[in-house]
């Protein structure tokens, strides 16, 4: 038998590719392929049981010029995103700061604040359905006992989205954990040096904490944006997109078109629209990041 020689580099490359192969294949088969397929489908009229018919840009044309519900869903989703993302980031940051202090029962507090994000989405939705009930819900009972007027919460066009934002803030555990990790990664000596120089708590927070975790804020902002543009279960389980389509999120509208109205082509076109919108927002955030995100060891 012939003896073969392998250089160490060769071997590393081979093994490297081999080990990464499941992830690469997974991406190709379960992400890239469906994406390409949905792009193709978005140019067709297809009810799944029939043969797809190529119709060019008709789906996109319909979306922009003939479908008021698409615009409604875009508005609803954007409204929710611009309300929910800042609310979640601010509250998660605040609570992470508090949970970064040395207090008694820290582990218990951290568990309590993280717990809601362990609850499955549907169970969460059913729970809040009860809290929001105008006649017997806990929230109105509390408001009533405080002497404040009652709200219809998710049963009113004007209050349904703020109500859902309130619910999303309750489930901010994951964001909070990432902030907490970021806060704990801030080097102690910076605070000590600042203290010696006479900086007070607010100065230390503004000049050390905030810059040092700005990369975490950046990460949470991007992830939050992507997540809220895909919000679905609240509309599916709680509001059915109502009242009067005021919680008709884009992904829910897409789902209806695909699986209830049998318009797979149109649904794919909406999916690509969502993708492009999220892509645009993400690029804007990325482009703006050098101005406000600080990375250690990086010199500008």
């Amino acid at each position: 038998m012939k003896k073969r020689y392998y250089s160490l580099k060769n071997m590393e490359t081979r093994w490297g590719i081999l080990m990464a192969l499941p992830a690469i294949l997974g991406f190709l088969m379960w992400s890239l392929l469906p994406m390409v397929a949905s792009l193709v489908i978005s140019f067709t009229e297809w009810s799944v049981v029939s043969k797809p018919k190529f119709i060019g840009f008709a789906n996109f044309n319909r979306m922009f010029t003939q479908d008021p519900l698409f615009w409604k869903s875009l508005y609803v989703t954007a409204y929710y995103t611009f309300l929910s993302v800042p609310a979640v980031i601010v509250s998660a940051f605040l609570i992470a700061t508090l949970l970064n202090q040395e207090v008694k029962g820290l582990a218990i507090f951290r568990t309590i604040f993280y717990l809601p994000s362990v609850v499955p989405a549907v169970a969460n939705a059913v729970l809040w359905l009860w809290l929001f009930n105008p006649d017997f819900g806990l929230l109105n009972t509390v408001l009533g006992s405080l002497g404040i007027g009652k709200s219809l919460w998710i049963y009113d066009e004007a209050s349904v989205l703020p109500s859902l934002v309130l619910m999303s803030v309750w489930g901010m555990g994951n964001t909070m954990i990432i902030f907490l990790a970021g806060l704990q990664g801030v080097p102690r000596q910076l605070y000590e040096a600042a203290e010696i120089d006479g900086a007070n708590f607010l100065q230390r927070w503004a000049h050390i904490t905030l810059p040092m975790v700005s990369s975490v804020i950046f990460f949470n902002l991007v992830m939050g944006l992507i997540g809220t543009f895909q919000v679905f279960s609240q509309a599916y389980v709680m509001t059915d997109g109502g009242p009067n389509n005021s919680s008709l999120f884009m992904v829910y509208y897409l789902f209806r078109n695909a699986f209830q109205y049998g318009r797979m082509g149109y649904a794919s076109a909406i999916a690509w629209m969502i993708f492009l919108i999220v892509l645009a927002f993400t690029l804007v955030i990325f482009k703006s990041s050098p101005a406000w995100v600080y990375y250690e060891g990086e010199r500008r």
């Binding site: 066009e157 997109g241 109502g242 009242p243 009067n244 209806r256 209830q260 109205y261």
Partner: peptide
């Protein structure tokens, strides 16, 4: 299906 939904949503208020 779509008409039914539009009626349901339209009369919710």
């Amino acid at each position: 299906e779509e008409i039914d939904r539009a009626i349901g949503q339209g009369f919710s208020n």
